[in-house]
């Protein structure tokens, strides 16, 4: 696996500079049922296609940001600071 991500703070860098935070999921806003809790904790969509995900610029500015990436081609459609993508980016809404 190898591709370039554009850190919203630092610019384009090799993917090895970053930490992967997994797909963006919503943390339940209110007390979830057991089923909801388990699906939040353990289940991922694992889409073959475009997904929104968290990345961390580990060897750089150490900031978290959001990327949209095609998991089949590793093409990164865009990256943004979480507040720039609005409510959709947040887990805790």
């Amino acid at each position: 696996m190898s591709f370039v991500l554009r850190c919203p703070n630092c610019g384009p860098r090799e993917v090895t500079d970053f930490g992967f935070g997994g797909e963006v999921i919503r943390r339940p806003r209110f007390r979830p049922s057991f089923r909801e809790l388990n699906s939040y904790n353990y289940f991922r969509v694992n889409v073959a296609g475009v997904q929104r995900e968290w990345w961390f610029h580990r060897s750089g500015c150490r900031a978290w940001f959001i990327a949209e990436r095609d998991t089949t081609t590793n093409e990164v459609l865009f990256t943004a600071r979480p507040h720039e993508v609005g409510a959709e980016g947040n887990r805790d809404q």
Binding site: F56, R58, R62, A63, W64, P82, D92
Partner: peptide, 15 residues
């Protein structure tokens, strides 16, 4: 150390 800092800053980004 590194993982906790990442963990804290991840939630901080969100909250």
């Amino acid at each position: 150390a590194g993982a906790v800092e990442e963990w804290f800053s991840w939630w901080l980004t969100d909250w």
